[in-house]
């Protein structure tokens, strides 16, 4: 550590040179800078703690089994989150169903098959740009395409429209993480396969993909956890805010956890703010579990080549 250096004797007596090292004040500035850097990090962490503590303190009182299993209500003490919880599970499963084949397939194409031509470059630039498009814009796309133009198939403002919209939103994330997982597989594995006479696809299917599964799964879970935390696109596509039934099919109306929380936070009555906090605890717990699973997969199944 460098802290003891500042106590070094400062050399002021030299007259031959106009240069004064002036170490004392320079080290003081150094120390201030160091404290500022640690302080900034500390402030960020403290705010995170403040946020978590507030939410737990506000919401733990109204978080009980009744809250988990009840439908929303006009009276805060009867209101529950079951419709939103089931809606979120529906959305999550559908998004996974759409994005896993599409995202992994596109990732394999770009990483393993694609030559460096205009199509590949266009897709790559495009994926980079899509990541920067605000999520509410995806909501507007979903509203126009899935909820209106494709209404006969999707049933309008349905759980299917919402899931399709979120799938488009996280598709670039899944593609990028698939590519990273594939890139981590050493080339020697592929070359060994080719040497035995296998085609590119046979090598991918029987060796590269199985080895990359933990990495791909980690990416998919993280992308899904982003999808279920998204609020804005679902509002735009038309998730309902007050629903007292569970989705019955793909064309059913639905609500989701963030939408329900948004609705409760927006109400003027204070009791609804407490149950909003309870809803946030449930949502954050889900995200925590998903992230935990992702980290576990990454640490325990990732082979070192």
């Amino acid at each position: 550590m460098k802290t003891d250096v500042s106590s070094r004797v400062v050399d002021k007596g030299q007259k031959q040179s106009h240069f004064t090292a002036n170490l004392g004040s320079r080290y003081t500035i150094d120390r201030i800078f160091k404290y500022a850097a640690w302080g900034a990090t500390g402030v960020s962490i403290l705010i995170l703690v403040w946020l978590l503590v507030t939410i737990v303190a506000d919401g733990i009182g109204t978080l009980n089994w009744n809250f988990i299993t009840s439908f929303p209500s006009r009276r805060a003490e009867n209101a529950g989150i079951i419709a939103a919880l089931v809606g979120t599970v529906w959305v999550m499963c559908l998004v996974a169903l759409f994005t896993v084949p599409l995202g992994v397939g596109a990732g394999i194409f770009l990483e393993e098959f694609a030559e460096d031509n205009w199509f590949t470059r266009l897709v790559e630039i495009n994926i980079g740009n899509l990541a920067g498009v605000p999520s509410i814009i995806y909501g507007l796309l979903g509203l126009a395409v899935f909820a209106r133009i494709m209404q006969p198939i999707t049933g309008g403002r349905s759980v299917l429209s919402g899931s399709l919209t979120l799938s488009l939103l996280i598709l670039p994330v899944v593609i990028v993480s698939t590519r990273e997982a594939l890139r981590a597989i050493p080339n020697s594995l592929r070359l060994a396969g080719y040497a035995l006479g296998a085609t590119r696809w046979q090598v991918i299917w029987s060796h590269v993909l199985p080895a990359a599964v933990p990495g791909i799964l980690t990416g998919v879970i993280l992308a899904l956890s982003r999808a279920i935390g998204e609020t804005a696109p679902l509002i735009a596509v038309g998730a309902a805010v007050f629903i007292s039934f569970l989705p019955e099919g793909l064309q059913s109306q639905f609500t989701a956890m963030p939408i329900q929380i948004y609705n409760w936070v927006g109400r003027p009555q204070e009791e609804f703010h407490y149950i909003a906090a309870s809803g946030i605890i449930v949502l954050m717990a889900m995200l925590l579990v998903m992230n935990g699973v992702a980290v576990y997969l990454r640490n325990h199944f990732q082979k070192d080549f």
């Binding site: 946020l51 939410i55 935390g229 609020t231 949502l283 995200l287």
Partner: peptide
């Protein structure tokens, strides 16, 4: 901090 849903920040 980066993974907290935005609706939670809104709250």
């Amino acid at each position: 901090l980066a993974g907290v849903p935005t609706v939670v920040y809104g709250y």
